[in-house]
Amino acid sequence: MIEYVKCKKIVGGVGTGRIVYTKYPLNFLSSVDAHTGVVSDPSHDLMGISLKNSILIFPYAIGSSVGAYSIFALKSYGVAPSGIICTIKVDITTASGCAISDIPLAQTIKGDQLQGLSDNSEAILDANNGSLKINKV
């Protein structure tokens, strides 16, 4: 089943990948391995999950201001998400990190409307046109 979700463009571009969804904020500096793109915080529900080539859907980033460089590092090492969606607010760390890394970034328009997605769903984030196309499995 294909579903379309409207979103607001923050950083333009188009990205394709499997959905990685969490309802918990993420600290890019301390909770994601910059060299592998795998979430490394045992207390986070994404522990052990790779963000590489994914459409990451999460509420917002927390913690260190250096997290923007961590997003850039993910891109530099080829393990970044293909696109990112913030469900509660687009924080400055994520916005600036995506801006220099050319990672499409968008915000859902009606709050956290993406709950319950299967992590195996494939999706296309077209930030330019403000749409997320989900192929639900």
């Binding site: 923050i10 950083v11 400055i92 801006a99 915000q107």
Partner: peptide, 14 residues
């Protein structure tokens, strides 16, 4: 140009 690209993204976000 990169600096303004960053500010523009933040402007959109906030």
């Amino acid at each position: 140009s990169v600096a303004y690209r960053i500010l523009l993204a933040i402007g959109e976000a906030t």
